[in-house]
């Protein structure tokens, strides 16, 4: 423990000190009180339920933020993601053409002025299609991650916190979903769907993605709830809801954020894979996966048709995985 924290210890310990005494004295037991006091002092982050954890949490997050701002990986990936999101919302900013306007006479032709990436087999402009493809990927990635993260952390967190039969049931249900290979499940599930929107794909990814987040959230909550300050909060008579929301959740959320950020990248790749196999997004939607799938058989004649959407897809996935990496490094003090 660093020295500067020393003076803080006793000062913050004082307001907490009397409370365990009050809580414990009616039962007339001296033991637990001594234990709580000892624990508080030796840890030097006293389990003050009102001030302690929030101070601590704020310092972890602001600490992480300070480290992130100086991390070039974080800055680069954030800028890339910002650019992608802007392009996904307003593709007209950098592409003036219509992605669905195609001239068959230009089929598979190389680049020419105004059309820097050339044309695909149908004679559509590869540049315009690559720009417009960002929307589908970002939408699927963001929506699927939000869904899976909310569902997974809610179920996993509750299971980890309350334990008992609910935990056992959830773990087995998660095992059921883990037992199904993702691409395979996608083929079976999505091959019967005829909708051309992105929602079936999002729904499927949430369906198979939540157990992963739930597992992380569960483990993280179990670790967090064993901390002394949580035990202290329980000893002080805090209810389950208050303990979960004020003490456990803020200290358990970091791993979930990290996994969700990285998962966002892999979900985008998964969407492209499903579209590549012909069951993900369907043609009127402009998608990198579909374009790559159409370009792949022609790789010997016109590699540019494959390389541009594939490059855009890879860079997008890369940006999110880099972001997740940087966030993890910042939130995991163990590795510093």
């Amino acid at each position: 423990m660093p020295d500067p924290e020393r003076p803080e210890g006793p000062a913050m310990y004082d307001p907490v000190g009397p409370r365990p005494r009050e809580a414990v004295s009616p039962t007339g037991q001296g033991g637990p009180m001594d234990l709580a006091v000892e624990g508080g002092e030796s840890l030097e982050r006293p389990p003050g339920p009102d001030t302690g954890p929030r101070e601590k949490a704020r310092s972890l997050w602001s600490d992480a933020w300070h480290q992130l701002r100086r991390n070039p990986v974080f800055v680069i990936s954030s800028l890339m993601i910002l650019f992608l999101v802007v392009i996904a919302i307003w593709p007209q900013l950098i592409a003036s053409g219509d992605p669905l306007y195609c001239q068959l006479s230009k089929s598979q032709q190389g680049p020419e002025p105004g059309h820097p990436f050339g044309y695909d087999t149908q004679g559509c402009d590869v540049y315009t299609r690559t720009v417009y493809g960002a929307r589908a990927s970002i939408t699927v990635g963001v929506c699927a991650t939000l869904g899976a993260a909310l569902l997974g952390s809610a179920l996993g967190g509750l299971a980890g916190f309350f334990g008992s039969w609910g935990d056992a049931v959830l773990s087995r249900v998660a095992d059921v979903f883990f037992g199904i290979p993702v691409v395979l499940g996608g083929l079976v599930f999505l091959s019967v769907v005829t909708s051309t929107t992105v929602w079936p794909v999002v729904g499927f990814i949430v369906l198979l993605g939540w157990p992963q987040i739930a597992r992380i959230a569960r483990g993280s909550v179990i670790t967090a709830k064993q901390n002394d300050y949580v035990q202290a909060a329980r000893a002080l008579g805090a209810g389950n809801g208050r303990m979960l929301l004020r003490h456990v959740a803020p200290n358990a959320v970091a791993p979930v954020i990290v996994v969700a950020t990285i998962a966002l990248g892999t979900y985008i790749a998964l969407e492209a894979t499903l579209s590549f196999l012909g069951v993900g997004l369907r043609p009127p939607t402009v998608s990198w996966g579909i374009d790559i799938s159409n370009a792949a058989p022609q790789i010997r004649n016109a590699p540019h048709m494959l390389l541009w959407p594939a490059g855009a897809l890879s860079l997008t996935v890369l940006a999110f995985i880099m972001l997740g990496d940087a966030v993890r490094d910042a939130l995991d003090p163990k590795l510093r």
Binding site: S293, R300, L306, A310, S314, V317, L318, D325
Partner: peptide, 22 residues
Amino acid sequence: TLVVISVPTFVTGYLLQYVFGV
């Protein structure tokens, strides 16, 4: 490793097949 993770399997597959095979 970051680059490898980011490029989807079906892209690496076609690229390596093209480069090494064709």
